[in-house]
Amino acid sequence: MQFNNILVDTHGNIAVLTINRPNKLNALNRETIQELHEAFKMLDSDRQVKVIILIGSGEKAFVAGADISEFAHFSVEEGGQLAAKGQELLFDFVENLSTPVIAAVNGFALGGGLELAMACHFRVASHNARMGLPEVSLGVIPGYGGTQRLPQLIGKGRAMELIMTAGMIDVDRALNYGLVNHVVSQEELMDFCKKLAGKIANNSSVAISHAIKAVNAGFKNTSNGYASEIESFGACFGTADFKEGTTAFLEKRKADFPGM
C-alpha cells in the first residue's frame, strides 16, 4: 500500500509507523489522518505484527499539531464534523486497537500531536520532547480527545492548568505527571521502544488485546470496567494462547503463542 505522508516498516513482529511530513513538523491534515487509519487497520489485521511503534520523522517533532491552514475558515458544522471524523478514524481507533501501540515522542507533541500520543497505549519520550495543548490560544479547544484523555492520565487539576494556559511542559514534568512512562535520549529512543516492544511481543497477543479492551472499559462512563474484565478473562480460556501458556508453564518451558 502506497502512502504520501507516512512510512511503514516491519521487521519480524514489530512495525514502525512514521509520520513523514518533516517540512510541516509532521502536522496532521485530513489526508494524513486517513492514511494513518488505513495503516493501523492493515497492521492490526496482520497476525505477524505484535506491536506498533509510532514516531514522527526528523529530530524536531513527533507531531507539532493539526494543520491549521486546513480548517481556519470552517463553519460550526464543519468544525464538529472535523472532530467527529478525526476521533472515529484515528484517535478512538488507535486507543481501541487490539495491537499495542507505543508512541515514541521524539520532539514537539502539541495539540493534535499530544492527543495522538495520548491515544496510544503508552508513551516513551526523548529528552528534547515538549508537550502541550495550545488550542485555547487559537480560540478553540482540543477536539481530538484531549479534554478527556489528559485528565485521565495526569488528573483534572493539572489538565485544566495545562489546557487553560496553553503552555508546554518538558519531559521531566511529563514523567512526574505520568504522561510518559520513560524518558531517554533521542539516540536511544527507537532502540528503547523496540526493546519494550520485544518484551510485549513475547506474550500472548490474544490476551493483550483482551487486556486493552478491559482497561479501556474502566475509563468509559457507558461501560463497567470490572464486568468487561470478567468477560475478557473468561474469553481467554477459550483461546489457543491460553492452552499454550498454561501448558508451557506446567512443562517448565517458554511459551510459543500461536496468536489465536
Results as ranks from 00 to 15, higher is better:
residue 3 F to P: 05
residue 3 F to Q: 12
residue 4 N to Q: 15
residue 4 N to H: 15
residue 7 L to F: 12
residue 9 D to P: 07
residue 11 H to F: 11
residue 11 H to D: 14
residue 13 N to R: 07
residue 14 I to L: 03
residue 15 A to K: 13
residue 20 N to S: 09
residue 23 N to S: 14
residue 24 K to A: 12
residue 24 K to G: 01
residue 25 L to H: 14
residue 27 A to Q: 14
residue 33 I to H: 00
residue 36 L to Y: 02
residue 40 F to W: 02
residue 42 M to S: 08
residue 42 M to L: 06
residue 43 L to V: 04
residue 45 S to Y: 03
residue 56 G to D: 05
residue 56 G to E: 07
residue 57 S to T: 06
residue 57 S to A: 15
residue 58 G to P: 11
residue 59 E to Q: 08
residue 62 F to Y: 07
residue 63 V to P: 05
residue 64 A to N: 13
residue 65 G to D: 11
residue 66 A to I: 07
residue 69 S to Y: 10
residue 75 S to E: 06
residue 76 V to F: 08
residue 76 V to S: 09
residue 79 G to K: 13
residue 81 Q to W: 07
residue 81 Q to I: 09
residue 84 A to T: 08
residue 89 L to S: 00
residue 89 L to A: 01
residue 90 L to M: 01
residue 93 F to E: 02
residue 93 F to P: 00
residue 95 E to V: 00
residue 96 N to T: 04
residue 98 S to H: 02
residue 98 S to L: 00
residue 99 T to C: 09
residue 99 T to R: 09
residue 107 G to C: 06
residue 111 G to T: 04
residue 112 G to V: 14
residue 112 G to P: 00
residue 115 E to W: 15
residue 116 L to S: 02
residue 117 A to L: 06
residue 117 A to P: 05
residue 122 F to N: 04
residue 124 V to Q: 02
residue 128 N to P: 03
residue 128 N to G: 10
residue 130 R to S: 03
residue 131 M to T: 06
residue 132 G to C: 11
residue 136 V to C: 08
residue 137 S to L: 13
residue 144 Y to G: 01
residue 145 G to E: 04
residue 145 G to D: 06
residue 145 G to T: 03
residue 146 G to S: 09
residue 147 T to Y: 11
residue 148 Q to A: 01
residue 149 R to A: 14
residue 155 G to K: 04
residue 159 A to H: 09
residue 159 A to T: 05
residue 160 M to T: 08
residue 164 M to R: 11
residue 165 T to F: 03
residue 169 I to S: 02
residue 170 D to S: 10
residue 174 A to M: 09
residue 174 A to N: 06
residue 178 G to D: 11
residue 180 V to R: 03
residue 181 N to R: 04
residue 181 N to Q: 14
residue 182 H to L: 13
residue 184 V to L: 06
residue 185 S to K: 15
residue 187 E to Y: 15
residue 189 L to I: 09
residue 194 K to C: 05
residue 197 A to W: 07
residue 201 A to R: 07
residue 201 A to N: 05
residue 201 A to G: 03
residue 201 A to P: 00
residue 208 I to V: 04
residue 212 I to K: 03
residue 218 G to E: 14
residue 219 F to L: 10
residue 220 K to F: 03
residue 223 S to F: 12
residue 230 I to G: 01
residue 237 F to V: 04
residue 240 A to T: 12
residue 240 A to V: 11
residue 245 G to Q: 04
residue 246 T to W: 11
residue 247 T to P: 03
residue 249 F to W: 13
residue 250 L to D: 12
residue 254 K to Y: 05
residue 254 K to L: 14
